[in-house]
Design a protein around this nucleic acid. Sequence first.
DNA 1: CTTTCTGCAAACGATTTGCAGCAGC
DNA 2: GCTGCTGCAAATCGTTTGCAGAAAG
Lengths: 152, 152
Amino acid sequence: MIDDRLGELHRTADERLRRDGQRYTANRRALVGALGDSDRPLSMGELLERSEGMAQSSAYRNLAILEEAGVVHRLVTSDDTARYELAEDLTGHHHHVICDTCGSVLDVDAPPELERGVHAFADAVATTHGFVVAHHRIDLVGTCAACTPNRH
Amino acid sequence: MIDDRLGELHRTADERLRRDGQRYTANRRALVGALGDSDRPLSMGELLERSEGMAQSSAYRNLAILEEAGVVHRLVTSDDTARYELAEDLTGHHHHVICDTCGSVLDVDAPPELERGVHAFADAVATTHGFVVAHHRIDLVGTCAACTPNRH
DNA sequence: CTTTCTGCAAACGATTTGCAGCAGC
DNA sequence: GCTGCTGCAAATCGTTTGCAGAAAG
């Protein structure tokens, strides 16, 4: 196997769950697999489509446990449905492009110079306000290519 | 009156509502006044506290209408309750510092150099993905000064 | 066997909506 | 008066939780 990214991912997830006294069950494996296959955050609906026969309540419960274990990250963009992605240390640092019209979210990398700028900003805020900055978000919000023709 | 910022604000809100065929009622004035008095986004609870006797449903309805009219902006940070602030052209461009622990949100200005970087990034994404970027968000997420001592 | 997981159904909490009466123009 | 606004109560919708049985170790 040339690219064992998914195998590695499952191994890491298993390990982090065990550390929390949790089991890496088929349901959890399915969720992590679905997120690992995707290049963007997935909504609950999308996750259920990709997880044959999983009860919605199990999905919610497992995603919460996976987030607790540091495997998954839950995000809320603008509409009222949450989306899920793998934790940042599993995917690499990235940002989001969000379509106001259809709610879709795309992953993108920001130029290093921009990242440097945000870090400087974060340091300044930490100093000024005694705020401990854990991480930052940069979202570009607008209209995606698919939704643009629909504007009139 | 030396600083007629609030008067001006109410005049603008009135005008934008009328443009939409809406009235600038006492309830709406109270909401806009509360947001204009605040230096940070307010939750529904905070808005109701500051709006003596307004029904919650009226507040939600009016905030939706004010948002439609371009007077108010609704934002969702991480927890599951929305927050509201005046539209950006009424407050000036700014960003948010969000406490993961207590959910509080603080307004902050980013250095111009950082804003330039984000715009360049937005332009690049627009070109690459055919995405029309309407605006951007930069959030610093972490632990506020008030919540820091509680970490152990 | 014991503990954790699971699905189902009921419960929740933020937000929305239907409706009848009140208010603005 | 007509139309929009309000409060109230009921409905919605995403998400959470209680519970009894199934599965992992």
